[in-house]
Structure formats: structure tokens, C-alpha cells
């Protein structure tokens, strides 16, 4: 996940699209939640938000 975040930062810097950073940060956080909660009792609660 950290490697992905690093690649995103590199991409945003190269493309000068910093305005996308907050949104991507939130989405990556959601992604991480999905990964860490998949298989747990929280999973059914996460998917309706997507």
C-alpha cells in the first residue's frame, strides 16, 4: 500500500495534479479499509458505502 501511495505522489507531482490529492487520499483510505476488513465482521458494513 505504501508503494502505491508513493507512486501516486510521483504521478501527481509529474502531472501537476495536486488538486486530486485529497480525493485520492480518501479513496485510498477506503481501499485500505476494504482490504483490512475483508473477511471480518465489518465487511458487510463497508460495501454499502461504495
Amino acid at each position: 500500500m505504501w508503494e502505491l501511495a508513493k507512486e501516486f505522489l510521483q504521478f501527481l507531482r509529474k502531472e501537476k495534479k495536486w488538486w486530486l490529492a485529497p480525493l485520492i487520499f480518501i479513496l485510498l483510505l477506503l481501499g485500505a479499509l476494504i482490504v483490512f476488513t475483508s473477511g471480518s465482521v465489518l465487511a458487510p458494513l463497508m460495501y454499502p458505502f461504495l
Binding site: M1, L4, L27, L28, L30, G31, I34, V35, L50
Partner: peptide
């Protein structure tokens, strides 16, 4: 499409 992206396509 978002769950797919966040699940396996993005990373």
C-alpha cells in the same frame, strides 16, 4: 466501478 478499482485493479 470503484470497489473493483480499490480492490484489485489499482494496486
Amino acid at each position: 466501478v470503484l470497489p473493483n478499482w480499490l480492490g484489485e485493479r489499482l494496486n
